[in-house]
Structures are given as C-alpha cells and as structure tokens.
Design a binder for these strands. Structure first.
Lengths: 170, 170
DNA sequence: TGTTGATTGACAGTATACTGACGATCTAGG
DNA sequence: CCTAGATCGTCAGTATACTGTCAATCAACA
C-alpha cells in the first residue's frame, strides 16, 4: 500500500485532535472550578493537596507529589502558599532531617470541610451539558485512559506506594 | 427529602473527579507531544498557533486568540517566541495602526510541514491504550462537551467570526 | 467636529507545570 | 568507619494560563 497523501492543514484537524480537546477541557474545568469556589480563594491544585494531606497526615512533599501526580518542583510553591494562608503546617521529621512532615491546621480542616459542596457543584457543572448516560461513559473511558497512560507523564500517580513510609500495612 | 449525608473525604473521590481527570490527561498529552516532537523544539501551543497563522495569513493577535481559544495575554509571549525562532513575521497594518499582521516565514512553513507526522504520532499515542471503538466514543463526547461548555472559559472559541476581518464572506 | 466608548497590544502580578541542577542528608557496601 | 549512590527540598530557567490595567488608536455618535 502506498503511503497516505498528506492531508491539507486545517484548523478542523486541530479542533478534532485529542491534545487540543484535552487542553480546552482543562481550561474550561479550571474556569468552572474557580467560579464555583471563588469565595474560598483556593485553586484546584491547592484543593487536591489539602485533600491528600487530610487523607495522609504527616506525609512529606515528595510522597505528596506522587499521591496527586504533581511535579515535585511545582509542589514546593503550592505548599508554600497553603502554609502562608495558614491551612497547613510543616514540621521537621526527627528521624530524617531531609524531610518535612505536612499536617492540616484547624483552619485548613475547616476550609476543606466548607468548600466541598462548591467543589461538587463545579464537578457536576463540567459534565452537565451531557446526558447522564454519556457522562458515565466519558468518565469511564477517561479513568481507563489516564490509568493506562500513567507512565507517560513525568510524575506517574503512585497512590498506594506512597503510604508505605507511614508504617501502614503495605 | 433530607439532604444527603456528607461523604467521607477520600483520594478516590479526587481520582474520579472530572476536573482531576482532565488535568491529568492534559499533563499526559503534553508529555507525549513533547516527546514525539522534541526534534522540532515546538510546544503544543506554538504548533497550534503556527497552524492558525498558516490557515489565516495576515490575522492579528486578538483574532488569533479567538481562533485557537488562547488567552490574549498568554498569546503575546507565544508570538514573541515564534518570532524569535524566525517562524513568523509581524507587520504593522496600514489601515489600523493598533494591530500587527501575522504571517508565516518560509522557515515557519517548512517546520509546520515537517512536524506534522510527529504531531500525528503524538495524537495517536494519546488514545492508543483504548480500543478503536472507545477512541471514537471518547472523542465524540469530548467534542460535544467542549463545544457545549464553550462559553464557560475566559476565551471562548470563535472559529468563524474571526475570519470576517479578512473580507471573506461572513 | 469633538468626545465617548470600544479595541489593540502590552504589561504586572499570580499560579501551574516541566527540566535540570544543587547541597544536605540518609543508606548500603566494603 | 567511610565512601558511593540515592533521596529530599529547593532553586533557576522556561512556558502556559488567567486577572486586571494601561496608553494608543479607532469608530460612532451627538
């Protein structure tokens, strides 16, 4: 079979490209999140970090980055901002002077509890234009795709491994 | 009906949230794009801008931002970098001294032609883990969702309107 | 014609993201 | 004990993104 002839260069090809659609959908998702949560002054990234610290109290920054699949470099400034807002604390670990353990403050636990309804509204709004059955289909396929492509990103998600340092049954 | 009891705060709720999945998939998509295209030193955004300038020669920056749904502020630096690499030219418009018209250089047209196979490989790799039928389903739903949520982002896509200034039939 | 209002490109400020590197520190092996 | 390698937080550099603002310019209307 001869090689395919080169397709003409059109914007429609861009609009239909997976990469373009993922970028666009991410922009929209962030925009909706910020709108629903503007009373709390928390970004999606900061929210995810708070949830992870709540779920894994005493986690260190490197393991946190694995749990939420954020870059270690990026996470540094996210943690700084959360600390500046008084939502988390960093304490040096006595048994390893390299790491700092992360904990929610009372203020952090409170805002996390209070923001949840707004976050749920935001998540619902992102999918609202689709029929309920289509929402399930889309989410199912996305979960699959993200999982199967996990290793393709710089910081693959390591949800389970990250717990080992806490001495829980691994 | 009484209000639903508050769900426990878990990472699984984050992992299943649309916003989280869109962010994750975007990270993965950019990573795959950069890997396939690293010989060309072009980002996904820069690639989309080149395609749009190729498709709409003589477009100005504001209209370009509408055609690819990028923020006007962000686009300024993207254009600067493309110009610094010698891929585009900016010429002042004689009939409106506010705007600068964008054109591909020969070098820009050449790299656009050459990079396309790599871009297509990247787009294919993003969906590769899914079965062919599921790829179509996912893309179909995403196209719908992005279109129906178009107004939710700061810079809604205006593919058609943006052509009017060129004197083509609107 | 003269002023109001809109548009354009640009800028400052903030927040993700990634690459690559660094010193401090810990761990393992000899 | 002591060094080689790994890991931790951090930093510099680059690139998207968004908010808000500004001067220059244009368009439309009184």
């Amino acid at each position: 079979m001869p090689s395919k002839p080169a397709a003409p260069i059109t914007m429609d090809a861009v609009y239909a490209a997976p990469g373009y659609l993922f970028r666009r959908m991410q922009q929209i998702a962030v925009s909706i999140f910020m709108e629903e949560c503007k009373a709390f002054d928390l970004t999606p990234v900061q929210y995810a970090a708070l949830v992870a610290i709540h779920t894994h109290p005493g986690i260190d920054a490197t393991r946190l980055s694995a749990v939420i699949a954020f870059d270690r470099s990026t996470l540094g400034s996210v943690i700084e901002r959360l600390q500046a807002k008084g939502y988390i604390e960093r304490k040096p670990a006595p048994e390893d002077r390299r790491i700092k353990l992360l904990h929610l403050t009372k203020s952090g636990a409170a805002i996390l509890r209070d923001i949840i309804p707004a976050v749920e509204r935001a998540q619902a709004r992102m999918l609202e234009p689709l029929k309920p059955a289509d929402r399930k289909t889309l989410m199912g396929l996305l979960v699959q795709l993200v999982d199967l492509n996990n290793e393709a990103s710089r910081v693959p998600l390591r949800a389970e491994d990250a717990l080992e340092h806490l001495g829980k049954a691994g």
